[in-house]
Design a protein around this nucleic acid. Structure first.
Lengths: 210, 210
DNA sequence: CAAAAAAAGACTGTTTTCCGCCTTTTTACT
DNA sequence: AGTAAAAAGGCGGAAAACAGTCTTTTTTTG
């Protein structure tokens, strides 16, 4: 029994490469390819694959916004996301969205095939090249999980990451300068960082802000 | 007379895609493919192509650092850079480095073929999808003196993102406090951000740091 | 070689952040 | 009703960042 696969990627080159790499595996059938999120959604109405290879970064609706929507409409379909990013920034966001597989575009044919097969059988697959990074992320999260940020703290954090100064945040949120200073201090403490640059990095990696 | 081409890209998928797309053009011969900068440099010792398709972002020596080095050693070889980035920052940097062509990985076979042929004949080629952006940049650059980061600036940037203070960076790189302060100011100016938090965010998103 | 660009160093203000340590009010819970 | 947690406000001092202007040295390049 062959595995039915669809591909959504805005790069003709990547689609070409995937088709070529998968062509040698008779047990995997690529039914359709799409160049963007709209085409994909249209196509899924008539063709529902077992596994969808989905690019994270596409024009219009990006994969990381698309995945949760698709999973709601097609709960039986498995999604394997594709990305260039090995920087763990987006890995975290996707794993939270219930995606079953995560592959880098640097992957080889063998790994690609394995990922599709494992996911089709109901398993989960993370690219070996980032597996350790994901692990690091999980332990990092557990460490700070004991003192999660409050909603208010997240508000301030978002503004800090956008480059706002204490004074600006205070006037934006109608708070006093001193109150905002206290929040900033508390956030630094909770995330165990020493300044706004390090805080910004950690917040982005952990997916605490956009 | 056929055009001799080599490809350097760390993505097997992209290489596969390029090979497939170029296979239909008999006038273009792909002689070799390489997965990183070291392999490429090794390979060029024995095989010198007319045109090199070079990925900008590769592990180790990145394309934007590699290009000027290669052009010095092989002045007759033409380089066409490949990137996902429609980020005008690096387009400009590459063109300044004497690269003859600039293609996005979203390109189609026809455009790819044209780019190779034009460059092989001594012309220059910029992906139509970013041509207008480059133009905008050139006028913008004249107005505000905008230019990409130097290697040294990247060093400082990396440390800033890691949360280092000016004093710490100074002692780490054996520079004076004032020198480091100057670099920071220049980086803020170049990336058009106003503080280290915003800088960190932009640097991470643009992939300027790890 | 001369000119340009990059790298390094220097100084002075001003603003912002960072570090304590503290009080009051509101909200949530059980 | 009691208390724990969150939200808000407050202050002073030290450290760091930010803004502006400037000089010297080295490297690159036409």
């Amino acid at each position: 029994m062959s595995i039915k696969v669809c591909i959504a990627d805005d790069h003709p080159m990547v689609i070409n490469g995937l088709l070529n790499m998968l062509s040698i595996y008779s047990q995997i059938d690529v039914l359709a390819t799409y160049a963007n999120g709209e085409e994909l959604q249209q196509g899924l109405l008539s063709i529902e694959p077992d596994v969808l290879l989905l690019d994270i970064q596409m024009p219009g609706l990006a994969g990381d916004e698309l995945a949760p929507i698709l999973l709601k409409s097609y709960p039986l379909m498995k999604i394997v996301t594709l990305t260039n990013f090995d920087n763990a920034l987006y890995v975290n966001a996707m794993l939270q969205h219930g995606v079953q597989g995560y592959l880098l575009k640097t992957t080889d044919p063998e790994t690609l095939k394995n990922a599709i097969e494992i996911v089709a059988q109901g398993g989960k697959f993370t690219d070996p090249a980032i597996a350790d990074k994901v692990q690091q992320l999980h332990t990092m999260k557990k460490e700070i999980g004991f003192s999660p940020l409050t909603l208010r703290e997240k508000d301030i954090l978002q503004l800090v990451v956008n480059g706002a100064t204490t004074k600006e945040i205070a006037s934006a949120l109608h708070l006093s300068f001193y109150t905002v200073e206290n929040y900033r201090a508390k956030i630094l403490l909770k995330l165990d960082v020493k300044n706004m640059a390090e805080l910004t990095k950690k917040a982005l990696i952990l997916g605490l802000v956009k």
